[in-house]
Write a protein that binds this DNA or RNA. Structure first.
Lengths: 347, 347
DNA sequence: TTGGCAATCTGTAACGTTTCAGTATATCTA
DNA sequence: TAGATATACTGAAACGTTACAGATTGCCAA
C-alpha cells in the first residue's frame, strides 16, 4: 500500500495540476510547511523557504482558487456593477480596461455584475453581499444619498464609487470634476461672446448632476451670462428626444447661443437639433462638450471639447478598492480628476 | 456537548449564510439527502423533496460556489477574453451586455480576462485552461487558423468564437456576414453610379478580413466596377493614420468615388480625409459604413450605413457556449447574422 | 544533568459540496 | 416464513487550502 500511495502521488504529480500535496511530496515536507513557506511565514527556515518556492515556480504551482475561497472566504474577485440599459455606454469598455490594467498583476479577477433599469439597483449589491462573491465592488451612477454605498458600508464590504456621495460618510471614490468642467465651459463660451447658455445635464438624481448644475450656475453669474432652461431632457434620454427638444428650443424667440453638453453622443443630437432649426454651429451657437473618445472634432470642427478619461477612472477605482481591501484608510482613497482645457479644433 | 452542538447549529442557522448543514438540521435529514433533494434526484421521496425545496426557498439557500467548485470542478464561470488595446472598442460594452442578458438567469458569472496586444493571444487561454477558472470561454478577433480555438478544442474546453475559423474543425461561433455586407455595399454604390471603389478593411489576419475582401471583390466584378487599392491602413489603425491616408488617396488622379468602411470610427476618419482633400461627401464620393450604434447619420446625413448588432452577438455567443457546456453538438451552435439593408438618411 | 526555550516543522480539522458505499425499513416472492 | 428486492435515507471521504495545536530538535542557562 506504500506502493499505492506512491503511485497515487506520482499520478498526481504527472498530469494533474500541482497542489500543495504535490509540492509536499516533491520536497519531502508537510503540506502545512509548504503552505507557509509559499507565503514567507517567519517560522519556516530560510533555506526551506527558498527550496519550496523554487520547486513551486518550476512546476508552475498556482493555488486553487476554490480551495482558498472555501477555507478563507477570500474570493480574489472584484465586481464591477453595471446598468445594462444605459443609452450612453461607450465608456464602459474604457472603465473595464482601466480596471483590468490595475488588477492584471494581482490575483484578482474582474467579474461584471449587470442589472437592468427595471430592477432595484440595490439588488445586485445584495446578491454580492449575501453570496459573498466578491472581495470588493465598484459601482457607478452614484447618487448623493446612495443606498448601495450605505448598504456596503454597513456590512463592511470594500467598494469604490464612480462619483461622489453626499451622506457624510467616508468611502473611496473617483470622480471627474464636473463642477470645474461646467465652469470652464461657461467661461469659454462667455469669452467667445456667448450670453444665453443652455445646459444638457447628466441624469437627474446622480451626484454629478448637481455638480454640473452648480458649476454652470456659478460661472453664469461670474461672467454675467444668463441661462436658457433646457431641463426637459438629460444625457440619459434618447438621441431622438434630445435632437427634437433642441430643435424646439432653437426655434424659440429667446434661444441659447451656447450649449454645454455632458456627453458626446448627446452632443451629436444637440448639433443635429441646431441644424434642424436651420442654424449654424460656430456662427449662431457654440457648443462645449465632454467626450471620452477623441472623435467629436471629426464630427464638427466647430465643437469645443473637454476630455474625460474613463480608462483612468477605471484604474483609479480599481486601485481604490484594492487599497481598501489591503487595509488602507478609505479616506485616503479618494481622487478627483481635473478636466482638460477646453479644446478647439477650428482653423 | 449535545448542547454545544445544538448551539453551534443554532448559531449557524441564525446569522450566517445557510448551508446544506443548516438545511439538514432544519429538516431533520442528512446533508446527503438534502443535497440530492435539491437536485431532484429520483431516490428521494416526493414529499421529502418538496419539503426540502420549500425550506431552502424560504431561508434563501444558495449553494456555496467555492464548495461546488472544489468538489466538482465546475466553476459556473464564463470568461470573455478581450484585447485591451484595440483602437475601436465601443462594441465591447454591447457584447458584454448581450452576454449578461443570457446568463442573467443562470448560475453563471461573467469574468473578463484581458490581454494586451504585446502578449501572445494564447497566454490568457492557457491561463484559463491551466487554472481551470472557467467552464466556457468566448474569444474574439478570430483568425482563419486560430491557435486559441485549436488549443481549446484539444483540451476539450467549451468555447465560442466571435467570427469563424477555417481549420476544418467544428466549433460554436457567431459571425456577422461581412461577405454580404461588402457585396451589398458595393451594389448600392454601383447603383448610385459609383465606379471606382475603395475598401477600408478589417485588420489583416482576422477571418472577417477575408470575408470582407472577397465580398468586395466578387461584387465589384458582378457590377463591373473597379477597385482603388487602399490597403495601407485597416480599421485597426489610428484615426489620424486613416484620415491622412484617405486624404492622400483622394488627392490622386485616379481617386475612388466610393468607399466601403468596416467600422464607424474609421468612417469618421475617412470622411475627414475626404474633406481634407477638398472633396464633398455625397457629391464627389459616397461612403457605405458598418456601425454598431446608430449615430453615423447624425455625423453626415449623406453616409450610407449598415447596422451590426453586437449585443445580439454577445447573446448568441453566450447561448453557444452554454449550449456546448450543456452537451449540445458544437456544430449546431453556429450562427450567422445577416446585415441589414443599406440605410440612407438623406432627404 | 535538567529544564526551558527558540527554531522548525507537522498532523488534524474545517470550510461546503458531491459521490460512494452503504443501512434500515417496508414490500414483495416463493 | 425466509429471503430477495425496491425504496428512502445516511455517514464518511474527498476536493485544496489554512489555522490551530502540537511535536521534535538543538542549544543554553542554572
Amino acid at each position: 500500500m506504500d506502493e499505492r500511495q506512491t503511485d497515487k502521488e506520482d499520478d498526481t504529480a504527472s498530469r494533474q495540476r500541482p497542489t500543495l500535496k504535490t509540492l509536499a511530496f516533491m520536497t519531502g515536507l508537510g503540506v502545512t510547511t509548504v503552505s507557509r513557506a509559499l507565503k514567507d511565514a517567519p517560522e519556516i527556515g530560510a533555506e526551506t523557504r527558498r527550496r519550496v518556492q523554487l520547486v513551486a515556480r518550476q512546476i508552475g504551482y498556482r493555488p486553487n482558487r476554490a480551495g482558498v475561497r472555501l477555507r478563507t472566504g477570500k474570493t480574489n474577485v472584484i465586481s464591477l456593477v453595471l446598468n445594462t440599459e444605459q443609452e450612453i455606454m461607450s465608456f464602459v469598455s474604457d472603465i473595464i480596461y482601466g480596471v483590468s490594467e490595475v488588477i492584471a498583476d494581482t490575483p484578482y479577477h474582474l467579474i461584471v455584475t449587470p442589472y437592468s433599469r427595471a430592477q432595484d439597483p440595490l439588488e445586485p449589491i445584495r446578491y454580492l453581499a449575501e453570496t459573498g462573491s466578491a472581495d470588493g465592488v465598484i459601482i457607478s451612477r452614484t447618487q448623493p444619498n446612495d443606498p448601495r454605498a450605505r448598504y456596503m458600508l454597513e456590512r463592511g464590504i470594500p467598494f469604490a464609487t464612480h462619483g461622489r456621495t453626499e451622506m457624510g460618510l467616508v468611502h473611496p471614490y473617483h470622480d471627474f470634476d464636473n463642477y470645474a468642467f461646467a465652469t470652464e465651459a461657461v467661461r469659454r463660451l462667455a469669452g467667445m461672446g456667448r450670453k444665453r447658455l443652455a445646459l444638457l445635464t447628466p441624469p437627474v438624481g446622480l451626484t454629478y448632476h448637481g455638480h454640473t448644475v452648480n458649476g454652470f450656475a456659478d460661472a453664469l453669474s461670474e461672467v454675467g451670462a444668463s441661462e436658457v432652461p433646457f431641463n426637459t431632457v438629460s444625457i440619459d434620454h434618447s438621441i431622438e428626444q434630445i435632437r427634437m427638444r433642441t430643435a424646439q428650443l432653437m426655434r424659440r424667440d429667446v434661444r441659447p447661443d451656447g450649449f454645454v453638453s455632458s456627453a458626446a453622443a448627446a452632443t451629436l443630437a444637440i448639433v443635429a437639433g441646431i441644424e434642424d432649426a436651420g442654424l449654424k454651429l460656430g456662427r449662431d451657437v457654440d457648443v462645449v462638450s465632454k467626450q471620452s473618445s477623441e472623435l467629436l472634432h471629426l464630427f464638427r470642427r466647430e465643437l469645443l471639447v473637454v476630455n474625460e478619461n474613463f480608462r483612468l477612472a477605471g484604474s483609479e477605482l480599481a486601485r481604490a478598492v484594492l487599497g481598501w481591501i489591503g487595509g488602507k484608510e478609505p479616506g485616503s482613497l479618494q481622487s478627483l480628476s481635473k478636466p482638460s482645457e477646453v479644446l478647439s479644433y477650428r482653423g
